[in-house]
């Protein structure tokens, strides 16, 4: 595995008159970890959905390693090397934890035995190995979040999109996840873009932060710069004590 570079060029998405995302541009270099933050309803998940192919942008283009991927079907975008988690987790409830991750692994390893093998390896790294034969619906929310990450990783992405995977985790669990992601990034060079409200995690992981509000990018910079940025403070004032 190695990372891919992500470019958003003036990406726009409207929902029946609602301007969910408006002309947002930013770049995540190959192998970097960046964060996407902003208040509720700012358009963060919509940006992810456009990168992952759930929606085609109304305008602008998404490039992965220079190749335009916007408008492609989600499975083809996965094929191109984008893995994503869902903010509202979507486990395959009636399947076991192992099967959940195996489905992801089958994408690159069509033989079931090999796919299971790599799924088991990923589960072990995320601390889910002991639960591998449980049905996914029996997992607690933090475990479901971990399962989301495991399943996305199983597709061997070059870019990993993480949508609030720390939400609902206890502080110690956040630290474990942060450690895991940092190690993953260092070892494989995987590019990571994460949406996060847990600022501790953002500060610890992200080299750069993109801030969106009402669908528009209002700031971009290192976590330190962002935390002093007046527009950002205005947006977050009274809403986000952690910052």
């Amino acid at each position: 595995m190695s990372g891919a570079r992500l470019d958003l060029g003036g990406v726009t998405k409207h929902f029946r008159g609602l301007r969910a995302v408006h002309e947002v541009s930013f770049t995540v270099p190959a192998g970097a970890i960046h964060a996407l933050i902003g208040p509720n309803g700012a358009g963060k998940t919509t940006i992810f959905n456009m990168i992952a192919g759930v929606y085609a942008p109304n305008g602008g283009v998404v490039r992965l390693d220079g190749k335009a991927i916007s408008g492609l079907r989600p499975d083809l975008i996965c094929d191109a090397g984008v893995g994503r988690t869902f903010q509202l987790v979507k486990p395959f409830k009636g399947l076991s934890v192992l099967e959940n991750v195996t489905v992801g692994a089958l994408h690159r390893k069509p033989r079931l035995a090999e796919a299971q093998e790599s799924a088991n390896a990923i589960l072990a790294r995320l601390g889910l190995y002991d639960r591998r034969h449980q049905l996914a619906e029996s997992l607690t929310l933090p475990d479901r979040k971990r399962l989301e990450v495991a399943r996305a990783l199983a597709t061997e992405p070059k870019l990993l999109l993480l949508d609030e995977v720390m939400a609902g985790l206890r502080p110690t669990e956040v630290d474990v996840m942060v450690g895991f992601l940092r190690e993953l990034n260092q070892r494989s060079g995987l590019t990571i873009l994460l949406i996060e409200h847990v600022m501790r995690a953002v500060m610890a992981l992200a080299a750069e932060v993109v801030v969106v509000s009402y669908g528009e990018k209002i700031a971009e910079g290192t976590p330190q710069e962002i935390s002093r940025h007046q527009a950002v403070l205005d947006v977050y004032l009274g809403e986000q004590e952690e910052l």
Partner: peptide
């Protein structure tokens, strides 16, 4: 396995290829 995934959640299945 893909069928089972689609049965459980088609959107999540498509996201993993």
């Amino acid at each position: 396995q893909y069928w089972l995934a689609i049965r459980e959640d088609a959107e999540a299945a498509q996201a993993v290829g």
